[in-house]
Design a protein around this nucleic acid. Structure first.
Lengths: 256, 256
DNA sequence: AATTAAATTTCGCCT
DNA sequence: AGGCGAAGTTTAATT
């Protein structure tokens, strides 16, 4: 872990200015804690008088200003900002301009408690677990997520990554194949479902195919209709919620 | 401006532990920069391997963990968390549990670049300018925001705070009174508009009354219909966008 | 407390 | 590049 190049407790505005300048020049991560006032002009406009806040400028030019409470920053800018800083009579002025969104942020620091520029090494991949397996579990637990009267019979685990299927019957006893996608389903997903039905559809009886996903791509929708398949909108979030609401006993009964 | 009680460069895990403990006990603002891994369990679940990040714990128990890029924190918890921290063989573990949302966050720091607890004084009021005056300006600039064919004649500035009116005529030449609300319009807004029309409606000619607001409260809606008034949905955001798109020349012509 | 809508939403995916 | 929709959305307002 690398030592920060510059980090100072209770720096003067001049010292802070140097740190800010260098951090901006080298696209590093910057933290400044101090007394400042803030003006924002863009989609809306805002003004915030003097107070002690935490300024965070990230490597990609994202800006966050945090007050002592709350999840949300009081002011911010998305990534891609260009910065200008200068020392004035009123204090250390830092301007962040977002060319893309034509917005600007102006901070004026009158006193600084702490300032540092950091070179953070962070390469790990963020993994959010709201998998298709989770969606499968939720549907097995609560089949009406697919449709009223749906009854799962067999759950399949495909070797190919990225989808999971469920066999079942609808309320009229017709066979149903459910294919789940965690994200927007595209043509490939439709074709996968179709192929699957083709493969097993040896009988003369019609087999319904339902693609379950948070969203259906437009072109996929056309293909879906052409192939006489169906779509059911279902988000991973809803599935996770379903799983959380269920008791462990119910889960075990279905998942074992 | 108060000096931070505890701020250390390259503190050991033991030193960091002390800072964290004290900060949590006294509900202060805490910043820890260091190498950590993160687990989240709640509405969804997530995992993030080791990497250098910025941890921010706020006075109200809000938690933010920021990677070197992007506006959004990689993991977080809304305000109201309860914290537990302890030193283990793997590192300094900080757990944030949100009882309200039944979510939890587990951070394990293996090395720390910087840690500080802060007592931030920040009492200024945040003022967002997307005022009714802005909405009025936007409508004067682009009357079709109210409806196709609307033509403003007079703009009124009422002394009572919280609303602005515009007089005009619709495409059939009928008189129109527009009342603007920046937020959801309630019964009072409807009654104000109605009273206004009553006051000026000396002629036998019908005067239309249009309430312009981002939203109409349900009860207000019923009253509106009973009084034969109308509603037009319009958000401050849309108005600001309209104003931003206009040239200063156009603005001057209308606003002077 | 639950529901609904707005947000300087951001972010990702698709056209 | 622009538009649409989801998000661990959050937050505020209303029922």
């Amino acid at each position: 872990m690398e030592k920060p190049l510059n980090a100072t407790m209770k720096p003067s505005l001049e010292e802070t200015f140097k740190i800010v300048q260098e951090s901006i020049a080298k696209n590093k991560t910057l933290i400044v804690v101090g007394n400042c006032e803030i003006e924002y002009k863009g989609r809306a406009e805002s003004k915030l008088g003097l107070g002690e806040r935490i300024l965070l400028i990230k490597n990609d030019g994202a800006v966050l200003i945090h007050r002592p409470t709350g999840y949300e920053p009081v002011n911010w800018q998305p990534s891609g900002c260009i910065f200008h800083s200068r020392l004035t009579e009123t204090g250390l002025v830092i301007r962040a301009t977002n060319v893309k969104t034509k917005e600007s942020l102006k901070l004026t620091f009158t006193g600084v408690m702490f300032a540092t520029q950091l070179e953070l090494k962070d390469t790990s991949e963020f993994i959010l677990h709201a998998s298709e397996e989770d969606m499968q579990k939720a549907i097995l637990l609560k089949p009406e997520l697919v449709e009223e009267g749906f009854h799962p019979i067999v759950k399949e685990k495909k070797t190919a990554p990225g989808f999971v299927d469920i066999f079942g019957r609808d309320k009229y006893g017709r066979f149903v194949v459910v294919e789940i996608k965690r994200k927007t389903a595209n043509k490939d997903a439709v074709l996968q479902l179709w192929k699957y039905i083709q493969t097993i559809g040896e009988t003369e009886q019609h087999i319904r195919g339902i693609l379950v996903a948070p969203k259906l791509a437009k072109n996929a929708g056309r293909l879906l209709r052409e192939l006489n398949l169906e779509f059911k909108q279902l988000s991973p979030k809803k599935c996770i919620e379903t799983l959380r609401k269920s008791t462990s006993g119910e889960l075990l009964r279905y998942m074992k």
